[in-house]
Write a protein that binds this DNA or RNA. Structure first.
Lengths: 183, 183
DNA sequence: CCTGCATATATTGGTTCGATATATGCTGGA
DNA sequence: TCCAGCATATATCGAACCAATATATGCAGG
């Protein structure tokens, strides 16, 4: 899925500027699903306009830089549907956190504990946000977003439970191992 | 985390060729954690040798192309430790699957069902593999890999349960919505 | 027999990232 | 009060990275 299609997806939910599209991948429901950077979003929006898949209008703002607000066109909606119906590629996960935990014995015990605790905090916050969002408007959410929200909640909840249940055990094991090596 | 550090991580587990490093990110425990392509692995290995963080030896093979097997050096181990102890960047998730489900109403009902069923199969296979691996040698695994394996199992299990429990409901909702629009 | 897969390295075009530049207003702490 | 830092907003650029392909060989299955 290229950035052009990702932008079309966001635009299908409503008009947006490049900056707002970025925010959708950083804060909103999409943030747990996909990502894109400015360096690819702005060229992608230009290309969408060139291809007639989106239109742009400039919006003057007081006390803010001007906006370039993009809207999806009927051709854009068709292109989005085509892109979505193509064979989805496998998920791409790149987690420095997990990579670090995998090599736990190369980390200092303090650093290891700090990382797990941070991650636990992160999951708690993410879950809180997801749940407050659910309380507010879960019934009004379209089925797709509601389903992915529920799946995200289930997955984060399982991860949080596991981290809380196994944190101390991991730290003990790593400590025991380094004692063994020292002998 | 750049590809050079990822390669050092794999090499810290034992000598390997570029091809074997790629496999580690495609099949092994690392496959659920991080990724790297040939186009970045081969140049990275060259750079590691240039910097004295790894050494290369050519291994002639009968009935197979020759191998270039890389070994991590003490300086390489130190560089790995430095890289691991740096502040980990946030996880990067890019899931065409979730992106497609988010826009469920843009998919044909058949396509939607097919995707979820495929994903269910995928999780079942992944879990089966993880569990058989655990039965064989969980006790002999270092604490880090055992922890990430357990976390992966917990997360995949939760995702599988959610998909199985909510699949039919999602399909009904999407069907109901498209009936509503048609009226 | 022959298609396709596994092993193995390498390259290349194109995509994407991450950091930075530029400009302005608001807010909170010293 | 001042000013550092953050939010808004667009844009660019070098570096990193991916996906596909080329090349070569052997083996297994239909």
């Amino acid at each position: 899925m290229d950035v052009r299609s990702l932008c079309l997806g966001v635009l299908s939910l409503g008009d947006a500027s490049g900056y707002e599209i970025k925010k959708a991948f950083e804060e909103g429901a999409l943030s747990h699903i996909h990502a894109a950077s400015f360096g690819s979003i702005y060229p992608a929006l230009g290309a969408l306009v060139d291809d007639g898949l989106a239109v742009m209008r400039e919006v003057e703002q007081e006390k803010r830089p001007d906006k370039r607000v993009y809207s999806i066109t009927p051709a854009g909606r068709q292109a989005l549907r085509r892109a979505l119906n193509g064979d989805p590629t496998a998920d791409k996960i790149r987690s420095d956190f997990l990579f670090g935990i995998f090599f736990a014995q190369e980390l200092t015990p303090d650093e290891l504990a700090r990382r797990i605790d941070r991650r636990i905090d992160w999951y708690r916050q993410a879950l809180e946000q997801m749940r407050s969002c659910a309380e507010e408007n879960d019934a009004t959410l379209p089925p797709g977003p509601r389903f992915t929200r529920g799946l995200g909640e289930a997955v984060y909840c399982a991860a949080l439970d596991y981290l809380e249940a196994n944190r101390d055990h991991l730290l003990e094991e790593v400590a025991a191992r380094s004692r063994m090596v020292a002998e």
